[in-house]
Design a binder for these strands. Structure first.
Length: 228
DNA sequence: GACCAGGCACATC
DNA sequence: GATGTGCATGGT
């Protein structure tokens, strides 16, 4: 079975089971920008607390972020963990946004993907997943977001080995699926959705919509350990 | 109390 | 290029 067909099969099962996820959970593109940084290795519930604190201060806009003293910003971000480093990272990222695009997410989104992605990656604190989250969910660019769940799920279902790189894994989706923004948004959100419920480090395969799906079996090779 | 969460930078081999 | 470590709170 071609890889693209298998990837579509996964998507179909997830979508049928969970429905549209409507990602990213944010009111504005700038909120996506901030959330993408704050959620690094952090439970989303804790990110929401920090976002609410920023909103409560009317601080969820580029220039206000820059005005807040760093120690104060640290306190606002405390619930997300890594709050000292995140306060610094957030300021650096917002500084870039203001310097490059006058603080306008709309203007940033007008920049072509091929030019914008390298610029984001040059910011300290923004790695591939954070950059791609911003590109896809705030700028609506056709790029696939890879995260820990993506890797774990595909590994458990026999598509990849554990030593695959971010770029390779991203290419796997982008080379075998139509480059459709809405599809990419929904697909990543669904992977996180199934990951949270079933594909933890300790698998909870009961009731998982992907149960029994294994690429190695499908293509008739020696079966690696399937999920379930 | 251990384990985990929608990573990333930096050092070292 | 692969591997190891620091960063830190809050939920299960």
């Amino acid at each position: 079975m071609p890889l693209g067909e298998f990837l579509r099969k996964i998507y179909e099962r997830l979508y049928r089971s969970f429905g549209p996820q409507g990602w990213w959970p944010a009111e504005t593109p700038f909120e996506v920008f901030v959330g993408a940084i704050l959620t690094q290795n952090t439970a989303w519930a804790n990110v929401e607390k920090a976002i609410d604190r920023l909103k409560g201060r009317g601080a969820l806009e580029p220039r206000r972020i820059m005005e807040i003293p760093e120690e104060e910003l640290q306190e606002l971000l405390r619930p997300t963990g890594y709050y000292r480093i995140k306060a610094k990272r957030l300021k650096e990222a917002v500084e870039f946004l203001i310097g490059e695009f006058g603080g306008s997410m709309k203007r940033m989104a007008r920049e072509p993907l091929e030019e914008l992605r390298p610029k984001l990656l040059r910011i300290r604190g923004i790695g591939p997943e954070t950059a791609d989250s911003i590109l896809l969910y705030a700028c609506h660019k056709p790029i696939f977001v890879v995260d820990a769940y993506t890797k774990r799920i595909l590994q458990r279902h026999g598509l990849i080995r554990g030593n695959i790189s971010y770029d390779e894994l991203q290419g796997l989706f982008m080379d075998h699926l139509p480059r459709d923004v809405d599809l990419f948004k929904e697909y990543h959100a669904l992977l996180v959705r199934v990951g949270k419920t079933h594909c933890r480090p300790k698998p909870k395969c009961k009731g998982c919509p992907l149960e029994g799906l294994n690429y190695e079996q499908v293509v008739g090779q020696e079966g690696e350990e399937a999920c379930g």
